[in-house]
């Protein structure tokens, strides 16, 4: 009797596509190494073969036994049971996917557009700021309805903005964002805890250990970051 579910088909599909893509790409670096007969491709290809075998083996096992943990693994119980049904539907996955794509859009698209339109270096910063603002509004609209997706995407969004806007200006916004997404609604607490976390981090890493964190490269963020670093060190 088949006990297969959609997720099982998706899993085997995912692994086999991954194997196919990586196997295909392995021809890009399929060069001879004089002292080593197997070259640079044997090792990754054997791993890919083992992934394919395991993915198929898993599929056959799932067809027979469903989602039951196999008898010979230990500690299967330490991971939590299956995810909340609220966050498994197609709609949820789609909106999460869009949220996760936003940071990557920021990392790639504005620079491409600027290059195509011939926007000059000096104006590029302003253009990136406007793009960031638009994408952030888009993020807020979607994350408003999908908090879990919002939490998954926020750190990547934060990281993608670090290069341009710097750690010093972004960190307080990030702290507030994470707290709100995790359900904190009391504004006095947020107002007290945010400077506390920010202050402790800066005091420890910047004043004490002299760790150089990204200051950003767009004014006024860049100026703010540098001003703060000078102040603290």
């Amino acid at each position: 009797m088949s006990k297969l579910k959609f997720s099982h088909y998706f899993e085997v599909f995912f692994w086999l596509v991954l194997v196919a893509v990586f196997f295909g790409y392995s021809f890009e670096f399929n060069q001879n190494i004089e002292i080593y007969r197997y070259g640079a491709t044997l090792w990754p290809r054997v791993i890919l073969l083992l992934i394919a075998l395991a993915a198929i083996g898993q599929f056959l096992d799932q067809r027979k036994n469903g989602d039951k943990a196999s008898s010979n693994t230990m500690a299967a119980a330490h991971e939590e049971p299956d995810a909340n049904p609220e966050h498994t539907g197609f709609k949820w996955y789609f909106s999460t996917f869009v949220l996760l794509a936003i940071p990557f859009i920021y990392m790639v698209v504005p620079e491409k557009i600027a290059a195509m339109r011939g926007i000059e270096e000096a104006a590029l910063g302003q253009f990136k700021l406007i793009s960031a603002a638009i994408l952030f509004v888009l993020y807020l609209i979607i994350a408003w309805r999908n908090h879990v997706g919002g939490i998954l995407a926020l750190p990547i969004l934060f990281a993608s903005l670090l290069e341009d806007m710097g750690f010093y200006a972004l960190a307080p916004v990030f702290i507030v964002g994470v707290m709100i997404l995790m359900g904190e609604r009391r504004s006095t607490r947020i107002a007290l805890i945010t400077p506390l976390i920010y202050g402790v981090l800066l005091a420890f890493f910047v004043s004490l250990l002299y760790v150089g964190l990204p200051t950003g490269n767009i004014s006024p963020f860049y100026d703010f970051g540098n001003w703060l670093v000078t102040l603290l060190q």
Binding site: I47, G57, D61
Partner: peptide, 20 residues
């Protein structure tokens, strides 16, 4: 491979993903 994942297959696939 037999520790930590839900099934042996998932343990093995996890390790192989790390190797990749």
């Amino acid at each position: 491979a037999s520790v930590g994942a839900k099934t042996f297959w998932k343990g093995w696939l996890s390790i192989m993903a790390g190797l990749m």
